[in-house]
Design a protein around this nucleic acid. Structure first.
Lengths: 405, 405
DNA sequence: CTGAAAGCGCTAACAT
DNA sequence: ATGTTAGCGCTTTCAG
């Protein structure tokens, strides 16, 4: 018979030692305060600190055990007088453990206030139940809505998410990916500006599952994404304006061609105008950057043209709001003098004054769908479709009207 | 001399084996596609899949090595012909490693495309460089702004954040804390509704550092928090309205007393009215829930009173916007017929129509300060102040004016 | 300056 | 039904 080796580590019994609670009682403060004092003395009020210090001295408290160290599975095993394996079985709800044994273990877990160490478990199991989310700006309502959808599905499927906010920086995008890989997340959701095909290749080679959100990959049918049809969205927006009799229709786009959603919406706009035989007036094409402030400036530029537009298609609701502010500052009335059409249907679109006509994107649902696809890939479950184009909706509200001229 | 044991595990040389790239070449697709096919065949277009399948068969590709397994430190060590310890030293920028050795290691790392496994490192070092964030709704602009501030500091100090969205559910709040503890995050930021003193005690006992945001703990000077002075904020808002000649000032609060920010703002409102000798009219006290829709309803209730208020103090900007919409629906003009004062200074407050007078909270800064305090506690650095009350600001815009009656 | 060996806390294959 | 053992991939003494 082999010697039992798992009693090698000594479990310090707390029973006959001075505990934090004794100190608390003696110094007449909460255990919380004592614990805090032990960890970071500087944050406890000086008079309180002094009292605690004296009690510690008086009771000869062993300063070794500062942080209430988490119990390990081994300690639970010892207390329950079983092996680590059995404790592990109880933890993982294996049914091949006897009723009485299980109870002993449960009691020990309770007594020691044992919290399994997921780091250790994950190292052993080679999984992390962690998803990485990379996005440019969490305070942008579009991204935060999508994130909410992702989180909802992830959480329901027992995954947690670690969030990387890149501030639109390409460098931080790259660093985030690197960190996430090193943390061994099981997959990524990307909402990126700077992620080009080359970097996607890099990702593919790393073998890490990922899905892009709010981005359409036209060139490779095997890269998963979730998006709406932005070309069609832009087309629908412009078409609606045309249907209301507008012919002098300006557009305020997003910056450059970094953000392909904006480019696609612009494409749709051009298409609608072409079909209606409306020539594109270059003066009516303004490049914004999705901010209120810039859109406001651009609207003013548009409205001070010799022949100002009667309608503006703003490629985001923020842009639309900026444009409305610009129009108002020139004493234009919206929609009487100028129609403005937005994009996204952020919550504020229906509460703005005037309420904003817009193309509704299913933002939370995009997040949900993306998370679902990602997790299916991670778990090697069948995925019916990895490139998802969700439906959008034309929402007509107060900011647009029939063209009076 | 002891035998060298670290050559025990065999490193599969990729040189003389059929690789994914050979398949790719043969099937005339990208390596990405092949890799994807290997992991989740169902997501590759069927014709492509068929071609790959044939190539795999033809080249007799070893299907064992599906996912490009990450190299381990041991493999790096073997390739560089040094010990794991030395590789580890290079990784951790220890300066007691020779120049030539270091170079060998660096090359091996490069060649194997080695990515350190942080799970293993963290298990060994007993740290995770992870912060847990618990908040009720990430799509609420207030929380997302705070989160952005947290993330900024965390990132700059080499921490990552895992996000828990509780949807205002007490159960999910508790579960989140549990999960976060098991994941061994090094500290929490809480923005909670249901976290009462009892649960704080529980947390304290767990020894886990944490800081509350947007919540003032009046009863215990040792629990860290970052907030503004909401009583004073409410007082300032109401006082401003009074200074403009208003005496019939209604308030739309948050729900119940769960959210103490709202309660505090209400307290400040009462205080300001008392000082101005304005009796509180119970008809003017409406309990909202921070949503646009509810605020809109309540504003309508207020304005259809026999003696409607001339001003409404809404305890959040969303509430203010809802109230404005309600007023407009009754053909009230804001601010000519009714002044409306908000709270928070969300970005949209300065772009709403009319722009909204409000109390500005330094949201991102609250996040930054909280993260900084938390990390200082985690790293046992001195913390000058653990209970921080940040300054707010009265911002006067278009939604308020002098009382005409 | 470098290597050997001992674990971090857990799970899982293999015994019994 | 339960125990033993061997790692997961890394860092860190301790030797030399």
């Amino acid at each position: 018979m082999k010697p039992i080796t798992y009693i090698s580590r000594e479990v310090k019994s707390m029973k006959n030692k001075i505990t934090i609670e004794d100190i608390a009682k003696d110094a007449n403060v909460s255990t919380a305060t004592v614990s805090r004092y032990m960890n970071t003395p500087s944050i406890v009020a000086s008079e309180t600190a002094e009292r605690i210090r004296k009690s510690v001295e008086k009771l000869n408290y062993d300063p070794e055990r500062k942080v209430p160290k988490n119990a390990t599975i081994e300690e639970v095993a010892q207390l329950a007088k079983v092996s680590k394996a059995t404790v592990s079985r109880v933890l993982n709800k294996s049914n091949l453990v006897g009723y009485k044994t299980k109870n002993k273990v449960l009691h020990a877990i309770d007594e020691l206030n044992y919290q399994p160490n997921l780091i250790a478990r994950y190292l052993r199991k080679q999984e992390t139940k962690l998803l990485g989310i990379v996005l440019p700006d969490i305070s942008n309502p579009f991204y935060s809505k999508v994130l909410k959808g992702i989180e909802e599905i992830a959480c329901s499927l027992e995954y947690d998410v670690v969030l990387m906010n890149t501030n639109y920086s390409e460098e931080r995008e790259l660093n985030s990916i690197q960190t996430l890989i090193e943390r061994r997340v099981e997959g990524f959701c990307f909402m990126c500006h700077h992620l080009d095909e080359e970097k996607m290749e890099f990702l593919e080679k790393s073998g890490m599952p990922y899905v892009m959100i709010s981005r359409t990959v036209y060139t490779n049918s095997n890269i998963p994404f979730v998006n709406i049809d932005n070309i069609r969205g832009g087309y629908d927006a412009a078409s609606y304006l045309i249907s209301q009799g507008h012919r002098r229709i300006a557009i305020i786009t997003g910056p450059g061609d970094d953000e392909c959603s904006s480019v696609d919406r612009f494409t749709g706009y051009r298409q609608a105008l072409r079909e209606a035989n409306i020539p594109i007036n270059p003066d009516y094409l303004k490049e914004g950057d999705f901010t209120f402030a810039r859109a406001q400036e651009l609207a003013i530029e548009l409205l001070t043209l010799d022949e100002p537009p009667t309608a503006i298609f703003a490629v985001s609701d923020e842009t639309a709001i900026g444009a409305i502010r610009g129009a108002i500052s020139l004493d234009y009335r919206v929609p009487e003098d100028l129609s403005i059409f937005g994009f996204d249907d952020l919550e504020m679109a229906q509460f703005y004054n005037p309420t904003i006509s817009t193309i509704a994107q299913p933002m939370e649902d995009m997040g949900r769908k993306a998370a679902q696809i990602l997790i299916n890939i991670v778990e090697k479950k069948p995925v019916e479709q990895i490139q998802l184009v969700l439906p959008h909706e034309v929402i007509v509200r107060e900011s647009t009207s029939i063209c009076k001229r």
